[in-house]
Design a binder for these strands. Sequence first.
DNA 1: GTGGCGTCC
DNA 2: CAGAGGGACGCCACT
Length: 704
Amino acid sequence: MPQTSNKMRRENLIQFADQARLSYKLVALEEHTPLPVSLEGLTIGEPNREKLCELFELLEFRRLTAEFLDTPSTAANGQLTTSQTDIHESTDSTEQPPIPPRQDILVDNAESLKLLVKALTESSAFAVDTETTSLHPHQAKLVGLSFAVKAGEGWYIPVSHRARDLLSETPRQLSLDEVLNALKPALEDPGIGKYGQNIKYDLQILRSVGIHLKGIEADSMLLAYIDEPGQPVNMDALAEKYLNHHCITYESVAGKGAKQITFDLVPVDQALPYAAEDAEITFRLVQHLQMKLANQIRRHNNIELPLACVLADMEWAGTQIHVSWLQGLSSVFGKKIESLEKHIHQLAGEAFNINSPKQLGVLLFETLGLEGGKRTKSGQWATAQDILEKLADEHEIPRLILQVRSLSKLKSTYTDSLPRLINSHTGRVHTSYNQAVTTTGRLSSSDPNLQNIPIRSEEGREIRKAFIAAPEHTLIAADYSQIELRLMAHFSQDKDLIQAFANGADIHAAAAAAVNQVPLEQVTGSMRRHAKIINFGILYGMSAFGLSKQLGISRSEAKVFIETYFARYPAVRQFMDKTLDLAREQGYVETLLGHRVYVHDINSSNGMSKAYAERTAINAPLQGSAADIIKVAMINLHQKLQSSGSGARMLLQVHDELIVECPNQYVDEIITCIKETMESVISLRVPLIADVDCGINWFEAHKL
DNA sequence: GTGGCGTCC
DNA sequence: CAGAGGGACGCCACT
C-alpha cells in the first residue's frame, strides 16, 4: 500500500514538474528572477510542493535555468542562434563532477538477485537493457539482462551463457525462469519508471519471454534524436558526445567480422562490464538529456516514446507474404531479362554486363557514338533513366536497357529478396522501423525496407499482391490525401489554396486552372499533369531548370510557369520567404509539433550548400509536419484498435499511409475508426482527409 | 567501402 | 561558374 501511493505521488510530481518547468521559464524570461520557482496556476498541496523542490534539486534545475538565462536571446543579437550555442558549445559533461569508477555487480545467485529486486523495487526509475544473440527480436535468444538504478553502478544477470568450447565449463548462472519470476513484478509495475536505449527492441525481447514492460519513461536514443536529429544515436556515440565516456565496444568482447561470436558465447567475466555499462550509461544519458531538453521533453514523452511502443507491436506482428506468388514473378522476370539481354548483346555486337553503368556508358557514347552524353561527378558517363529515355528514340539499345533495368531491379530487390527475409518462426516479414535516423522526423524501414514496395509500374505493382492478410483477415490501407500540400495551405494561409481544399477540389486541376487562367472545366490532361509537377516542385524548392527538365519545356517557359504560380498563390511565396528568414535567424526550422530541423548551411558562402539548405528549410516543415501528424495518428489508432477488442492491428506505415490487418467481421467498423482517427489528429485551416480501402492483399487494398 | 542507379512517399 | 528536387534504403559493379 505505501509503495503504491508513493508511486502515484511520484507520477504526479513528474507531471507537475513538467508544467512548472515551462511556467518557470516564462517567468524567468520575463522578469529575470532567480529561484524560487513560481507555481502560479498549479493546484498542488504543501507536501507536494516540498517534494517538487526536491525534485528540482535532483534535476539540477537551477543550473539549467541559469544556462537558459545566460544564453543570448535571438532577438537581442539577431544572428547567432541559441540552439547552435547549445549544441556546439555546450560543456555540460565537463562541468559535472567526475563520475567515480563504475561498480559492476554480477547476479548469479539467489542472494544477489534478491538484492537487485530490492534495489529495483525501491527505485523511482531504472535503466534496463537486454543482451541477446540477434538483432532480430523474433530469432534472438535472451542471454542476459542488465540494470542500473543510479549512476556509478551496473548490474548484470547472465541467463544463458554457454561454454565456448569443450574445455571450458558452462558458467554458473541463475535459471531464466527464476530470474524472470523475480523481476516480473518490477518490470511490469507501471509505477516504476524504465529507461532504455532503443527500448523498442527490449520491449520485443521481453515480450518474447512473457514480460510486458510497463512504466516506460525514457529512451536515450529518442532523447538524443530530439536533441539533434540526423546525428548518430548509437550508445557509444552518445556516451562520447554527452558524457565524455568511452564505451567498451561490442567488437572488443565479441570480435568482429566472420570471427564474431554471439553474446551467449562471451565469457561472463567479459560480459559483465560490457552489459553493466550499457545499463549504467543509459541511465546517465537519460538523466542528462532530460535536463538538457527540458523544453522539448513533451515531444519525447507524448510522441516519440509512445510511438516506439506502437512500432514495437507493428514489428512484432509482421506481415504475411505469399511466397509462391513472388517466386512466380521472379521466374517471369528472369525469363524476360534473359531474352532482352540476348537481344541487346546481338544489337551491340558484343557481350557486356548490362548491369554495369560504366560498361554501358562506354558502349553507348564511345562504341556507338550516340549524342547527348553527360558525365557524372566522378567523370563516368551518366546512364540514368532520363538520359536513356532521350536516347530511346534514336537507338534500340537504350530502350531495351531501360526494360532490363526495371525488371532486374524488381527481381533482385523484391521478388528474389523478400522471401529470404521471411522469419522462419512466424512465416512473416518483420521490418525494422528506425525512428531516429531522418532529419525531417520521418520513419525509415529496413530489413526489409517495406516503404519502397513498387506501385507505379504495372509489373512492379504485382509485387503488392504478395503482401497478404492472414486467413480470415483483410488488409486495410489508409492514406492521407495530399497531406503536404494541405500543410502548405495551412502554414501559408493562402486564401485560394485553402478555398480549393475547403471545396474538396482536385488540387492539381485547381492549380492548372489558376496557372493557365482558365475555368476549371477547360483544364486539359496535360495542363493538370504540368500543374501536378509544379505543385510537388514547390514543396521541394525546385528551380526553373529542374521544372523545365521535368516538363520538357524551355527554361524560360518554366520560369513564367513558376512566376504565374506564385502570382496566383501569393501567400505561398510569402510563407517560403518567411520560413527562409526564420531559418537564417535561428539556424533551424520547426514542424507543427516542434521537431527541429537544423539548416546550418543556410548562411553559407558556398552557393551550392546554401541553396541546398534553403530547399531543406522549405521542405522540412512540410515533410516533418506530415510525419508528426501520422505519428500521432498511429499512437491514437493503436490505442483504439487495442481497446476495440476486434483483433485488428497496424502492420505498416509508409509515410502518409497506414496498413491494418483486420478480422473480416470487423472491417467496416475498423475502416470508420481508422478514418476518424487519422482525420481528427489535429485541426488545420484545411480539412485533413484520409482515403481508406481494403482487400485481401496490399494491391487490392489500393484500388483508389 | 563508394558511387550509380532505382524504388517509394 | 556549376549545378540547379526534399527524405529514405538496397542492389550492383567496381576499387
